[in-house]
Simulated scan of single mutants.
Amino acid sequence: MRDIPVVTSGYTFMVTGEPEGKTNPDGSPYRPKDRNDVELDQPFVVMLLAKPKPVPGQPRRKDGEEIKVNLPCDPGEGFDLGTFVELINPVINTFEMRDDDGRISNAGIWWKADGLKPAARPVATKPPAGSGSAASAADKASKAA
């Protein structure tokens, strides 16, 4: 399967490595060609920290994973380190590598998106009303008095 759509609404993404153009081993810009042998724009890659968004009533998760996302072209200005972003049309693809004996020696996924757009900095969400403890309710009542 190729270009499997991904729903990312439950995650925040922060730039940890600014977008940079893909290069050939000799350092020259990598310029892929389409099926008609027409040269395409230089693809870019960006490193992002993907973290689950907080869920009300559950402890905040501290884990996250750094992912590399392939982009078809330069995403433009404004994607500096620490910037929160959203992925435009994100997809994943699978890969596998085989050793000399034909056995799978490595496998995984790689990310691709049509682009990036700035996202609002995530804000901690408050638990729903009435989900607080009896102690916090008593504390609020004493402050009101």
Rank of each mutant, 00 (worst) to 15 (best):
K143I: 04
P122N: 01
D100G: 05
P59D: 06
L48H: 02
D34G: 00
K140A: 10
G82Q: 12
E39C: 01
R98L: 03
D3Y: 04
Y30G: 07
G115M: 03
R121L: 02
N24T: 12
N89G: 09
G64N: 12
A134W: 02
K22V: 07
S131D: 07
W111V: 05
E77I: 15
T12K: 13
K33F: 01
I67R: 09
F95T: 05
T125Y: 00
E86V: 08
D74P: 11
A124F: 02
Q58P: 04
D34W: 02
G76Q: 15
D101T: 11
L87F: 05
S131E: 09
A120E: 08
V45H: 06
P122C: 01
S105L: 08
P19D: 03
Q58T: 13
V15I: 11
V85T: 11
P56C: 10
G10N: 14
K68S: 12
P52F: 13
V85F: 12
I92T: 07
V55I: 15
R2H: 14
A120R: 07
L87V: 04
Y11E: 14
V46S: 04
K143F: 01
D101W: 11
T8C: 15
E77R: 12
V69T: 04
Y11F: 15
M14I: 09
P5E: 08
V38A: 00
G27E: 09
P43W: 15
Q42R: 05
K140T: 03
K51V: 14
G17N: 11
L71Q: 13
R2M: 15
G27W: 08
N89Y: 13
P29E: 04
M14K: 11
D139I: 06
D26Q: 09
K117T: 07
E20V: 03
E39K: 01
N89W: 12
W110I: 01
A113L: 06
E65H: 14
K117Y: 04
G17A: 13
F13A: 10
V85C: 07
L87T: 03
S28K: 06
N70V: 12
K112R: 10
K62I: 14
N93E: 08
P127F: 00
A134G: 01
E66C: 12
G130Y: 06
T12N: 13
T12G: 11
C73D: 15
S133T: 10
G10C: 10
P56K: 02
N106I: 04
L71Y: 10
D101N: 13
A129S: 05
S9M: 13
P29Q: 04
A124V: 02
P43M: 14
L49I: 10
K53F: 10
A134F: 02
T94R: 11
I88F: 09
